[in-house]
Write a protein that binds this DNA or RNA. Structure first.
Length: 665
DNA sequence: TGGTTAGTCGTTTTT
DNA sequence: CGACTAACCA
């Protein structure tokens, strides 16, 4: 197997002398290094799979890694191998150790919508901006491992004090719900390990070798978790690329790359610079753009896959025209090469940009799938069903209670809920518990109380059965009992009920499979489900369709032909990033986009687009000017502009010759 | 209590 | 222009 690797890749795989950092440029085979290293650890170094943990950032990446390792070694040898995201790993640890933290092991996980609701209630506001920024500030505090108490003590200004108070009450609310948010899943294990060395030791013994993927995306807490688990032996391999760090806004800290060298002086640094994905011109563009950023580690990608076609830049007048031209190019290219739709990806900065493309795709009957954006788990009908399951697993989960008791409608309205809520608050119990309390029963009329009681009795019965009965059939029974399908058909706007019901069926199928395969109860499954965007990507692979994706969601993927749309000032780089001096990260985003392309890259922008209903003049992105002119052909037309001539034949010849020389051909 | 409607508001990226 | 909310009627 090792012969399939190039020299630095092999070096990275076999190095077991201590901490190892692999600086892996885009397309340089980092997943291959990680998977081969796992195989090497088991096969050659004689390690037990259950002592190895590979940590990624997305479930998709984890799944892919699992599959690729599965192709290298027989199943028996991989038994107990941990391949998971930081969040799933934290979740696993916390389910086992919850009691050390005063939580019950059946705690719920709150998604950001639930969290936003809590914040909005605490602040008594509906201002989305304010809620958003409060959430992100609390998240930052958590990621820097500052507790509510510490935040209160540290507060320097009125604003900071308010924030700290909000943080405190938010956290108290979470505790009352017996719920954790995403950040807690990382933060609490670190707290736990610091407070209980014996627990840390247990996990150090269990996870003796760590492999961390996308290391440049780790935040302070995640790095501390890695450091704690790696312990004094420092047996880990981190793989990352500072040029692909695009998550600073959610706390990722590129400086962790430098810290690694500081904290582990013996760190072995290995660079992977040969790219196996893109043709030379694409890499030249990528290198040129990223060259405008300051460098942490010197690194230059190269490939021997040939020069390739020039990068095409399409100009158009409006966003509709942009979509039309991009799709024209896409269709004619696909026609000429007789290729598959799935060879094409359209990438953009923000989710909303997909809509215009989507509309035209639909009109032209071009098949497409959208990755990123609203995940399966975020769909209303799925959240409805999961609310029931969450409540069954943890009856203290008030958001789940509220959602499930009101969907489908069962005669419990806002007034009753309000009463229940304030009663629960004064008694300091959950909504669910309050329903059974004498004090509450007398507060409402029998007609209002009846449905509440019926609902809670129903949940109680389900709880008894959920621990023992097969998951799939029980869930089906639940859906039948609440008449969920009928409810969907009665509410088939704006999305058709068939589609929603299909999603629910997919969920049932997934849970049934999980229940049978791993012999897990409904409760077991529900407790891990919050982090799984399960059906994501399921049919993506076998359906022949154009991929629409945000730049963020495209990281780690590759496509023969890539279109990068909306390449304009205030979009890419995004306005907020320009205002907050974050243009370097936007440039890395551009870099990520460019390096997704294998054979051709087409970039587009338009002269004006609608924003909040108003037409706005737009300027081409500054990043366009950073592309090497000799590798670019501009086509299309902008209002007032003549199409620009391509380079002359002679110029191109000379440039090509120079290029060939540069890449050593 | 629940569904309909007429206003209002405003677009980053995600585990 | 379209999604989402707050008042409004059945």
């Amino acid at each position: 197997m090792l012969h399939l690797l190039n020299t630095p890749q092999r070096e990275a795989v076999v190095y077991l002398g201590g901490p190892c950092l692999v600086l892996a440029g885009a397309g340089s085979g980092k997943t291959r290094v990680i998977t081969q290293k796992i195989a090497y650890l088991i096969e050659k170094a004689g390690m037990n799979a259950k002592n190895i943990a590979a940590i990624t950032f997305t479930n998709k990446a984890a799944r892919e890694m699992q599959e690729r390792v599965g192709a290298l070694l027989p199943k028996e040898m991989l038994k107990g191998l941990t391949v998971s995201t930081f969040h799933s790993l934290g979740l696993k640890m916390l389910r086992e150790e919850a009691r050390h933290l005063g939580y019950k092991p059946q705690f719920s996980i709150l998604d950001s919508a639930d969290a936003a609701k809590i914040i909005s209630e605490q602040l008594v506001t509906t201002d989305k901006q304010l809620i958003r920024s409060s959430m992100s500030q609390i998240s930052m505090l958590k990621n820097d491992r500052i507790s509510p108490d510490k935040a209160l003590a540290m507060a320097q200004s009125e604003g900071e004090l308010q924030l700290a108070k909000l943080y405190r009450s938010y956290q108290d609310t979470l505790f009352a719900y017996q719920a954790l948010d995403f950040d807690d899943l990382i933060r609490l294990p670190v707290d736990l390990f610091e407070a209980h060395p014996e627990v840390l030791e247990k996990w150090q013994n269990r996870l003796r070798y760590l492999l961390v993927d996308e290391y440049q995306d780790t935040n302070t807490t995640q790095y501390q978790l890695v450091k704690l688990l790696a312990g004094v032996t420092g047996l880990f391999t981190a793989v990352g690329d500072d040029d692909q760090s695009i998550y600073a806004w959610r706390g990722a800290n590129v400086d962790n790359l430098r810290l690694l060298q500081e904290d582990f002086p013996k760190l072995q640094v290995i660079k992977l610079e040969q790219n196996y994905r893109s043709m030379a011109r694409i890499l030249r563009c990528a290198n040129a753009v990223i060259g405008n950023n300051p460098k942490l580690f010197e690194k230059k990608l190269w490939s021997d896959l040939g020069v390739g076609d020039p990068i095409m830049v399409i100009e158009s007048k409006t966003e509709e025209e942009e979509a039309a031209m991009v799709l024209d190019h896409l269709e004619s290219s696909r026609f000429l090469s007789n290729g598959k739709y799935s060879n094409y990806a359209i990438l953009y900065r923000g989710n909303h940009q997909a809509r215009i493309i989507e509309k035209q795709m639909w009109g032209r009957r071009i098949p497409y799938v959208i990755s990123g954006g609203q995940s399966f788990y975020d769909k209303a009908e799925i959240k409805d069903v999961l609310a029931y399951l969450r409540l069954i697993a943890n009856e203290d989960d008030d958001p789940a209670f509220i959602r499930s008791v009101t969907t489908p409608k069962r005669g419990v309205g806002n007034v009753t809920l309000e009463k229940l809520g304030s009663y629960a608050a004064t008694r300091n119990v959950s909504f669910f518990a309050a329903v059974y309390e004498e004090g509450f029963i007398h507060q409402v009329q029998a007609a209002q109380y009846e449905p509440l009681r019926l609902f809670c009795d129903f949940i109680n019965r389900m709880q008894d059965r959920a621990a023992k009965e097969p998951a799939g059939p029980l869930l089906n029974e639940l859906l039948l009992a609440i008449d969920f399908e009928t409810w969907l058909y009665e509410n088939d706007e704006p999305r058709p009920a068939e589609a929603k019901w299909k999603n629910v069926q997919d969920l049932v199928a997934w849970i049934t499979k999980k229940g049978e395969e791993d012999d897990k109860s409904l409760i077991d499954i529900v407790q891990t489900i919050a982090l799984i965007t399960m059906l994501e990507g399921r049919d993506e692979e076998d359906v022949d369709a154009v991929k629409l994706s945000t730049l963020h969601a495209s990281k780690g993927l590759e496509y023969p032909h890539v279109f990068l749309i909306g390449c304009e000032e205030n979009i890419l780089p995004h306005q907020n990033s320009i205002e907050s001096n974050m243009v370097e990260e936007e440039r890395r985003l551009m870099y990520v986009g460019i390096t997704r392309a294998q054979r051709t890259l087409t970039i587009s922008y338009c002269g004006k687009r609608r924003r909040a209903g108003e037409w706005q003049i737009t300027e081409p992105s500054r990043f366009l000017k950073e592309l090497p002119p000799e590798d670019v052909i501009i086509s299309g037309r902008l209002a007032g502009d003549k199409p620009k001539p391509a380079m002359s034949k002679e110029e191109r010849k000379a440039k090509n010759a120079e290029l060939m020389a540069r890449i050593g051909k």
